[in-house]
Simulated assay, not measured.
Amino acid sequence: MSGAFGADMRLRRLVDRGLLQRINRGQYVAAQEWSALGRDDRYRVRVLAAARSRTAAPPLSHESAAVLWGLPVLAGWPAEVHFVTERRSGGRSYPGVRVHAVGFDARDVTVREGVVLTTVERTVVDLAARLDVKSAVAVIDRALAVDRFRRVPAMTTKLQLLETWERMLPFRGSVRARVLIEFGSELADSPNESASRVNIALSGFPEPVLQKTFVIDGRRYDTDFYWEEFDAVGECDGDAKYFDPVLLGGRTTAEVVKAEKDREDAIRRRVAAFGRWDSAVAMSQYRLRERLLELGLPARRRRLLLPQSDLQRDPRVERRYAG
């Protein structure tokens, strides 16, 4: 028995015993460390392992570049690691790896964490062309997001996205990618808000003001959505606000719930109508439509103009956020 074969057999036994987790050919991580990782970090580890195991690996792309840039993917991460190659290379896909032989410009690749990958702009355009609409807008909004305290710069600008889009022409999905980039906003604070924006537009409701600020009793309150004509506020909350230790900031869940109740009471005193919805409602066009009709808003004509074929829902998104 050769040394390499014997070592491989020993590693397989450790995997069978639940002590190691195989993440790529010849690459393993302690099972205890793996179990402590969340979904994002697990995919990130797989992506880095796949890229680092290949000599002169092509650039990581699509969801695999997105995870390294910290961009959200609503449906969850794919099983494959994505790479992009030149059109003439005709790269092959195989189990665990998907190769997109669509070509790339040298300006659209960079290095991050020691691996080559597509830039934020190229990654966003690639995903805008192929993800479902809510997921694509969540990616675009995150890349454009401006920290309200101006401490962290935006990852990119709409102008830079459009320059990359133009450089990539022609490509499949270019029309819908352009529409969604134009729809993107630097003011959406979360994927839930991005999904809400999409469903608000698709249902034909008036365009809301994002992050409208009210000063009440000397305190500042920023709201997610405000319809000035109807003096109505809409708030979209995910569970993270109440349970994520980072967002809790040392407070208990009960303290956050009490603070949020006091905040809502203050805003209700100032406006004519107030509505709140969670992630499951944000992801569902029908359910959010019902909430906004109850709020007194009129549904008119769809504002996000895309072909019907581009408006197909991804059932994985609604299942993941169904609660």
Rank of each mutant, 00 (worst) to 15 (best):
A7T: 15
L11D: 13
V15L: 09
D16G: 09
I23T: 10
R25I: 11
R25W: 14
A31P: 04
W34K: 00
A36H: 11
L37C: 10
D40C: 10
D41G: 03
Y43E: 05
R44A: 14
R46A: 07
R52T: 06
T55I: 14
H62R: 08
E63Q: 15
E63F: 12
V67E: 02
V67L: 05
G70I: 01
V73W: 08
A75I: 00
W77F: 09
T85S: 09
R88A: 14
G90Q: 05
H100T: 00
G103C: 01
F104R: 08
D108C: 04
R112L: 14
R122E: 01
V133K: 02
A138P: 01
D141W: 02
A145K: 12
A145S: 08
R148E: 13
M155F: 03
R172Q: 11
F183H: 12
L187A: 13
A188R: 11
A188L: 07
S190Y: 04
N192G: 15
S196F: 07
L202H: 11
G204N: 11
V209W: 14
V209L: 15
I216K: 06
G218P: 05
Y221C: 06
D224I: 06
A232N: 02
E235M: 11
D237G: 04
D239G: 08
K241T: 06
P245L: 03
P245A: 04
V246K: 07
G249V: 02
A259W: 03
K261Q: 13
A272M: 06
G275R: 12
R276G: 02
R276W: 07
M283I: 10
R301D: 11
R302K: 14
L304Y: 09
Q308M: 14
P315V: 01
